[in-house]
Design a protein around this nucleic acid. Structure first.
Lengths: 152, 152
DNA sequence: ATCATACCCCGGTTTTCCACTGGGGTTTAG
DNA sequence: CTAAACCCCAGTGGAAAACCGGGGTATGAT
């Protein structure tokens, strides 16, 4: 059906990678696939595809050649989670329902269900939209602090 | 991953069937698989499984034998969409994260992502929880009225 | 210049899950 | 006792997700 909002491996990998990139954003230096993959236990050849998608989506930039790698295309607080999901999962469609009488569900009941489903989807999207990579990074860091405190 | 919030065929079929059952609730008579399947264009053998799940979930009751069929276990306004989804998709788990140190994501970053994801999920769930089968039925009926008006 | 590094592109494989089907059995009204 | 209906469980086909590999291209260092 339309509207596959799920936390797939893909999305999680992408976000994990983006957290790393956000953490290294200050340095201006690019991060390489290998490093990210090792840090987060992601199969590197797979991660490569995801990063390519993120690049095409304008979320990250890539530098080719030796000493190359990836950097965020914008500041971490200007990238929200919703656009990451949309970029990765690629839920582009959902144009206006009618073009003459296409196959747009065609039953009253289906339309009613879809309507409510979309309302729920919008609610979830609003949450994702208000969180940025910066917040993710900050939360990670404060968690680290906390764990360190417990360790002592 | 955890938390697959998506509108699957399964869920849609189940809701379509439940709308039919809600519409016939006043009569007290049971509805048969064949009738529901024909009405909503659902493969009947498949629908059978879904109805079985709904029955085990306490959402509908079944009457065996000749003249048997299915009825809602409660009034249509006492069944909300969230419980239908939970029953059908079976997202039961999500216990407290730690039992010693199981495989519960184990990385800080994963936990942070999961946390936000769950917040989004709760937002969507709240929407689904506030709609009942009665509302679905009502919407369907008023849509029908509207379409009829246009027809004239 | 050349060479190692690291991204780029595109296709294949494996695994998993979903939608769907089939073959029996059991209960119940007439 | 028989037909109508639900009940249970075990498959199958296809598609998508996750993952891997090969060869190409740009780039910094020597």
């Amino acid at each position: 059906m339309i509207l596959p909002v799920e936390l797939s491996c893909k999305s999680e990998y992408a976000l994990l990678a983006l957290i790393e990139l956000a953490a290294h954003y200050d340095t201006g230096e690019p991060l390489q696939i290998r490093q990210i993959a090792a840090q987060q236990n992601i199969p590197d050849r797979y991660l490569e595809q995801l990063l390519a998608t993120l690049r095409r989506g304008g979320i990250i930039r890539s530098q080719r050649g030796a000493k190359g790698g990836y950097t965020l295309a914008r500041e971490p607080w200007k990238i929200n989670l919703l656009e990451v999901f949309i970029c990765i999962e690629g839920l582009e469609t959902q144009p206006n329902a009618q073009d003459s009488d296409a196959k747009s569900d065609k039953t009253l009941e289906g339309a009613v269900i879809l309507e409510i489903w979309q309302e729920a989807h919008r609610a979830a999207s609003a949450i994702l939209q208000k969180y940025t990579l910066q917040e993710l990074r900050d939360r990670r860091d404060s968690r680290r602090q906390l764990d360190f405190m417990y360790y002592i």
